[in-house]
Design a protein around this nucleic acid. Structure first.
Length: 417
RNA sequence: GGAGAGGUGGCAGAGUGGUCGAAUGCGGCAGACUCGAAAUCUGUUGUUGGAUUUACUUUCAACCGAGGGUUCGAAUCCCUCCCUCUCCGCCA
């Protein structure tokens, strides 16, 4: 969501962003409605002024004023009805207004325009044909698929035995690192009101991908970002308290609508998973928020480097990065069995987008003015997806799986899964 | 699930139909005193939108959980929803 004033003054910039991000939004129509809205608002304000004046006179038993007041009342009501209609239309369109992407972002309508910006870690040369993580899970009795699917539906699974322990170890490992980096840790709920999802920008676009609890008018979140972003809703923060660094651990739910046939088996794409999300609230300052962005990205790299998993970083193109994003980079881990990289992390700077929707502001010390904060987020770690990369990269010829050294302290120095 | 109480400015807390955007206290900010600090004293202290202006300058409107209603006029009365608290019941 953008500032309407910015849209009025820079319609062409907005139109370009709309086009590059492949968004269905008629900017000219939005501006037309904006004008109409202003007119109605002015009219109502004038009537309200009159109403207030008349009320004072009525206290002095002015009968004429009372007659006029009744007329004004009707006029206000009529105009308010017109206002409400236009406002709804306006809000709907405003929710679709995109953040203007950074100049670093490649322009293109889909993922095919993404660019690899970094590769790290040596890809292991196997002297045997690496097995898929699905095979390895089976050999080592580390997961249950079919029996669980019968009970819970497609794209569900259970981690078993030492893999279940490894998952827990990963959480400890991730939390330790983020805590040392100054993050406030939250173990969070995943049930929210729709308001929170509009706040992050997941709604309206992601409604189809979100589990609903209609009886309670609530939804299951697909990321802890939703709750973390909502924590400071409607607040005016002190500049001195920024940046705020939150790490949230929560179950995540995604319907994966429209992804039929994609990564059906295994640990890659499931309906319910666990994730630690990094979330930062910072000043409305390009330099500062870029600094925080690099911080978030570095944290992820550090984690993966400690786990010794080869990865690459992708700069997402305009069409692949979502309405609200200024800049987004995915971190992808190497999967030996398929000789490809799979997305395990996604780092985003949303500028004011979420702050506007959620009304999170701060008072700037220098000017004493109230400004919208910038919000940023990046995956800390998500399972089971990352487990696929760990298992495959750490496999041996006989199908045994080594445990990354960084995790062993959390597993009583266990060496093999 | 049943019964009751309540949601007001950064916080605490008054206000139950008419200059109430809201008393008071705390906190914050500025100043005085001080070598400096504390204490004390003085002043100041919400957001959003419109118009106006050299200037947050002046002015108007809106906002007291959210949305509706009654009234010339609502923080105050009525309805719905959300949230919080207390007691009872149930329960991981």
């Amino acid at each position: 969501m953008l500032d309407i004033k910015f849209i009025r003054e820079n319609p062409d910039v907005v139109k370009t962003a709309v086009k590059n991000k492949n968004i269905k939004l008629d900017v000219d129509l939005l501006l037309k409605i904006d004008m109409e809205l202003l007119n109605v608002k002015n009219l109502i304000q004038n009537l309200s002024e009159e109403k207030n004046r008349l009320s004072l006179e009525i206290r002095n038993n002015n009968e004429e004023a009372k007659t006029r007041a009744l007329e004004v009342k009707v006029l206000i009501k009529e105009n308010e009805e017109a206002l409400k209609e236009k406002e709804q239309e306006f809000k709907k369109m405003m929710l679709l207004t995109p953040t203007i992407p950074s100049e670093e972002v490649p322009i293109g309508i889909d993922a095919s325009f993404n660019v690899v910006t970094k590769k790290f870690g040596e890809i292991r040369k196997f002297d045997f044909k690496p097995k898929s993580h699905i095979e390895l899970l089976d050999i080592n009795d580390l997961a249950e698929f079919n029996k669980i699917t019968k009970i819970c539906g497609s794209r569900t699974l259970a981690l078993k035995n030492n893999l279940a322990r490894l998952e827990m170890a990963l959480w400890q490992f991730t939390y330790d690192i983020l805590f040392e980096k100054g993050f406030t840790l939250f173990n969070l709920p995943s049930v929210v009101f729709e308001e929170a999802l509009y706040g992050t920008g997941h709604f309206p676009n992601e409604i189809e991908n979100t589990y609903a609890l209609p009886k309670d008018k609530q939804y299951l979140t697909g990321t802890a970002e939703v709750v973390l972003n909502g924590i400071h809703k409607d607040e005016i923060l002190n500049e001195d308290d920024l940046p705020i660094k939150y790490a949230g651990f929560s179950p995540c739910f995604r319907r994966e609508a429209g992804s039929y046939g994609k990564d059906i088996k295994g640990l890659i794409r499931v309906h319910q998973f666990m994730k630690v999300e990094q979330f930062i609230i910072t000043k409305n300052d390009l330099e500062e928020s870029e600094k925080m962005y690099q911080f978030l990205l570095n944290n992820t790299e550090e984690l993966l480097q400690k786990l010794k998993i080869p990865y690459q970083i992708i700069m997402c193109s305009t069409g692949d990065m979502g309405v609200g994003k200024y800049k987004m980079q995915d971190v992808e881990c190497y999967l030996p069995s398929e000789n490809r990289y799979i997305e395990t992390h996604s780092c985003s700077n949303l500028h004011e987008f979420q702050a506007r929707r959620t009304n999170i502001r701060y008072r700037e010390n220098k000017t004493n003015k109230v400004k919208f904060v910038h919000t940023l987020n990046n995956t800390g770690l998500a399972t089971p997806r990352i487990l696929a990369a760990i298992i495959e990269n750490y496999q041996e010829r006989d199908g045994k799986i080594k445990i990354p050294e960084a995790l062993r302290p959390y597993l009583r120095n266990l060496e093999w899964l």
